[in-house]
Computed example of a mutant assay.
Amino acid sequence: MKTYIPKNDEQNWVVVDAAGIPLGRLATLVASRIRGKHRPDFTPNMIQGDFVVVLNAEKVVLTGQKMDQKVYTRYTGYQGGLRSETARQALAKHPERVIERAVYGMLPKGRQGRAMHSRLKVYAGEQHPHASQKPEKLEVQHGR
């Protein structure tokens, strides 16, 4: 009996509207979709997931006091070069990066995670250049 190895020939495109959805809930859904965990033949050592297009990144919601208490930091490489900004400032300046960073933290680390991250496309508004791929709309339940 031979071992079944799934093919990687299927590449679906999915569109998610982020308006009014909490950031963590959106990021877990997108990360599992990119990884391919929704498929019955999921294999952890293969990239089998979908390409995910996230729209309306500026309308994503952070619950509680996270808008002012969550801080994104980066280091420039120079002495005293630790730069930080709150989630409110980051969403105002570049809302795409907030979602990209949340999803990237939920993907595997290393070569495979970087390849999976390239399947994520995030846009601040409702327009996207991927209409020729005919992406299907993915509904997200928000609220309980």
Rank of each mutant, 00 (worst) to 15 (best):
M1R: 15
M1V: 15
T3Q: 15
I5Y: 14
P6N: 01
K7F: 13
N8P: 04
N8W: 10
N8T: 14
N8R: 13
D17M: 06
A18E: 01
A18M: 04
I21T: 08
I21K: 00
P22M: 03
G24T: 04
R25Y: 10
L26E: 02
L26M: 02
A27T: 02
A27N: 00
S32A: 10
I34E: 02
R35C: 02
G36F: 01
K37W: 12
R39E: 00
P40I: 08
D41M: 11
F42I: 05
F42K: 05
Q48G: 08
Q48Y: 08
G49D: 08
G49W: 01
G49P: 04
F51Q: 09
V53S: 08
V53M: 01
V54G: 03
L55H: 02
A57P: 05
K59L: 12
T63V: 10
K66F: 11
M67N: 00
D68G: 04
Q69V: 11
Q69W: 13
Q69M: 11
K70C: 07
V71L: 05
V71C: 04
V71W: 04
V71G: 06
Y72H: 03
T73Y: 09
R74N: 13
Y75H: 15
Y75P: 01
Q79G: 13
G80C: 08
G80Y: 09
L82Q: 06
R83I: 13
S84A: 12
S84W: 05
S84F: 07
E85P: 00
T86W: 03
A87V: 01
R88N: 00
A90C: 13
L91D: 00
A92M: 06
K93P: 02
H94W: 06
H94A: 09
P95T: 00
I99W: 00
E100N: 03
E100G: 04
R101N: 14
A102S: 05
Y104M: 10
M106R: 02
M106D: 06
M106W: 05
K109A: 13
G110F: 04
R111K: 14
R114T: 13
R114G: 12
A115Q: 15
R119N: 11
V122I: 08
V122W: 05
G125P: 03
G125A: 11
G125C: 11
G125F: 06
Q127F: 11
Q133G: 03
P135E: 04
P135V: 07
E136F: 14
K137V: 15
L138E: 01
L138C: 09
E139H: 14
E139C: 10
E139K: 14
V140C: 07
G143D: 07
